[in-house]
Design a protein around this nucleic acid. Structure first.
Lengths: 217, 217, 217, 217
DNA sequence: GATGAATGAGTATTCATTCAT
DNA sequence: GATGAATGAATACTCATTCAT
């Protein structure tokens, strides 16, 4: 966790530094992100960095927590107009909101990826939290679906959760690649682009596939 | 690409070096893999390494190509006892063969992962090739499936290929984690473990889900 | 020398700060003692430290002077029940009192050691004073002893003073080590432990050796 | 221990580097000695230093071992014209040889001091060896002296060894200070100066004092 | 008088790559 | 073809001290 000094900073400065961190850690593997580059870009002294953060990992951790918080706020802001308890409507909403977040905040999304896929020296509890990820949520949903009869009762819930998670985790990147968005495009018009008919159709199709795949015969 | 000097080496030595490379690059992130460690383990001089390979990335590239070739040979050795043209039987075979490869050759499989997920300075053409991955194969299969009526004609083949690829790419790791195999276990009994009833059931379920998800209604 | 601001402090606060300084400088080599640690433990601001002291060395100097003063007071409080003018009784008293001080005030004693043995940027006059140490006192005593006939007249008084000083300087540490006192033991029961028969016997033997060594034949 | 690369160096270069190390570590506390300063003075690359030595402590260790070896060779070269078994003749020789070494090789002697008095991260076995120092030798001599009747039988041999060691350890520095040798003087005429009548007289007096102090009454 | 953020030169150490032998 | 010493820019991190508030 960043030190108090960081949170006591004038919000202008704090945000400026946060942006520099975000850029550096989003654009470079953790191991390659450089504290020296950060302080240079932020126009602060080396020592200041270490008055704000315990170390490089602490700065990353801060960003990761921010990313989770941003994502949560973002997702909460997206109305879930689904009937309560309709599993696939839930998933549709979740995929839409999650992917939309990735389009609107590609840098934060990248931080999330790195936290999952790279070897970053974070507190054990944070690591456990990352490891767990969304799989637990998916598993729970599937188990409910099985008992309500929506889902094929022979399904191994762990396996099912894995398939959902791996699809959800990667679909954002796929769509970006598929519609060839440059990072600049994204920053400029990410959310708008995401709202296009093609994107929505892609999400619809994905949910359809999963729905037919999972539902009880 | 390695230099001629490397291929002119006595095959004993060449293989010994290859094994060292495989160990080092499989067990460490590319950035953390160390040329010094490699030459020490291989018992060759630092300078020799640079007479065999352009640089560290070149050595990785060599290994990646080898990994692809090994995989191809492995998969060709697995009999595809499917009726020609049965798409889902094809996929079943492909997932089985691919996953079996990961269990039998975890180190090579790891190289493949790194090539996809890490930021490795490879020639643009190789990057494109990695990017492309198995997606082209899946897409083709899906297109055939659509025209033969097996597959829902509304499917965006790219999207479908992405779902298949992302599932196929990650299921090996999921199974290893789920059945808690240590790296040592794998090296000792990888292929055998993979043949177990539970593993087979997991693959069956996965294919079933995809089959029901994708097939025409 | 500390600034007036320091001496104007409420004596509570001044003493609290002094204790923190004492701990830090006694437990760490001068170079490793940390101003940051001091202000944190003392609960004062970094800037305040520099309003009290010129710099780190100034704080050490203050402590060193305090240590000397404490030692002087301590020694004055120990009754010298010797016949006036009996050189070896004087030395016996001095060694006993000095060593007793080290046992009762190990932290202050440690400051004294550091002043002598480490490379601390102090004012030249202080360095000279440290350098001089107790040697002048010993030399004077020896010269008196020579003129009174107690001491071998061929003795080079400087040399003799050196031998006395080096023995006196180190015997405290030797005894602590020999009787394996932990720092905690010392703080709890230092003075008492020192009064034990074994300690007293060690001092007796030491004085005996010096007495026979130095006295006129 | 330095790496092979260091010992494989042309002896010119190896000696040049050794001299730079000796200067740096003799003139500065271990903690303040700087690897950067060393490589600059030696005209070698930062990386080369670490190809020769494991780390800073390893370079110091090398120097310390060299110092011990030099001292041993030096002392072996000084004829011990004493009757076998005459304790005080032994001590006379030892003090003369040891002090003479300090005058001839003040830098090496300083390394020895630092090893004893500073907190240097050395292998535990080396630390034990340093800790032990010459005390064991002195103790053994005293015990022999007691059984042969030369030494006062009431003497605590540990205490006696401490007195001898502390005197022997410090007399070199005392003599240098007393006769005000600048470091330059020492390097130019150290050994010669040491041979002067005054020095010899100082050693004689010291041995006399110890002899009378310790011997049986 | 008190504060604590800002500073920046300093530290030890690493490592892919080059090149003279 | 083989060697392995030499390189130096790069890394994360520290800490006494200053200074604006």
């Amino acid at each position: 966790m960043p030190k108090d000094t960081f949170f006591n900073l004038a919000s202008d400065k704090r945000e400026a530094i946060t942006n520099v961190l975000l850029e550096e850690f989003a654009h470079n593997e953790y191991k390659l992100a450089s504290v020296s580059a950060i302080v240079k870009k932020a126009g602060i002294a080396k020592g200041s960095f270490y008055q704000y953060f315990e170390d490089k990992a602490d700065a990353f951790l801060y960003l990761f927590q921010l990313a989770m918080q941003e994502k949560m706020e973002f997702m909460n802001s997206i109305p879930a107009d689904n009937v309560q308890g309709d599993l696939f409507a839930n998933l549709r909403w979740m995929m839409e909101a999650g992917t939309s977040f990735e389009f609107s905040n590609p840098n934060y999304a990248q931080i999330g990826y790195r936290a999952v896929f790279e070897d970053i020296p974070l507190p054990a509890e944070t690591k456990a939290l990352i490891e767990e990820g969304s799989r637990g949520y998916f598993k729970e949903q599937l188990i409910q679906g099985i008992s309500s009869g929506e889902i094929d009762p022979n399904l191994d819930a762990d396996l099912g959760a894995f398939i959902l998670e791996s699809t959800f985790n990667n679909i954002g990147k796929h769509l970006m690649g598929h519609f060839s968005f440059s990072p600049t495009d994204l920053l400029e018009q990410g959310a708008a682009a995401f709202a296009s008919a093609e994107m929505q159709s892609a999400l619809d199709q994905t949910i359809n596939i999963l729905e037919h795949g999972f539902k009880a015969k």
